[in-house]
Amino acid sequence: MREKVPEVFIFISAPVVVLVFLVILGYIFANGARVISLEFLLSTPRMAGMEGGIFPMIVGSVYVVAVCMVFAVPLGIGAAIYLAEYAPENAITDTIRFFVDCLAGIPSIVIGLFGLTFLVHFLNLGYSILAAGIALAFMILPWTVRVSEEAIKAVPRSYREASLALGATKWTTVHKVVLKSAMPGIITGVLLGLGRAIGETAVLLLTLGSAASAFIPTSPFDSAGTLPVFLYVLATQGNTANAYARACGTALVLLAIFLVVNILAIYVRNKHMKYEGW
């Protein structure tokens, strides 16, 4: 009898979690769906975002995340290869891993502050896509590193032995066999990092400014509006039913992008499993 209460609680927890997700999604959808139109998606905002569309923000978000990936992916994969293949198993390596994990735990607003003081002002990059992209890269770097490292470590030892026994060097083995086998896992990790980057707001507020931009950015030194920041501005400054609806519409677009990226990540992973014959 005593066991019944915790058991009941456990059995309803999972449905509650699903319900929370559906409530959020349903609420955003119910409030935001009516503002979604081709015009909303493809035109520039007017009247401080109260009219027109969010096209510059879509471009801005994609641009910033792309710059972020340019920094995070090579650096992350490079560090992962080092940790998984070359680093000796000793205290120094463990310390590096510890720092990588700590970096993952730094609140994004702190990374944003670093971006503002160091990248925007000290390096004089200004409120720019470049500064925001680099700051975002710092934020998702630990994820890219650890997921890639796990993917590399999961490559069976027998592949490495087969390659080395054929007379391959370590580096040839790493990039022709190990990386090739780990690539689906690495891509999944990168896509999950990308999903996190696309919704990040605090970092962008401090490195890209908060303009509801009607301007479509081209240079990496341009400032730009992004979806999450635009949403934030609408939600905090609009204070009208129309502003909330438009914020919800923006959120829907953001969620849609996020969903596409995650589905892509799952697709790559599943395809890989089939390929490996698991």
Partner: peptide, 9 residues
């Protein structure tokens, strides 16, 4: 080797 270990290629 003891276990066949072709590359996943």
């Amino acid at each position: 080797f003891q276990q066949p270990n072709p590359f996943p290629m």
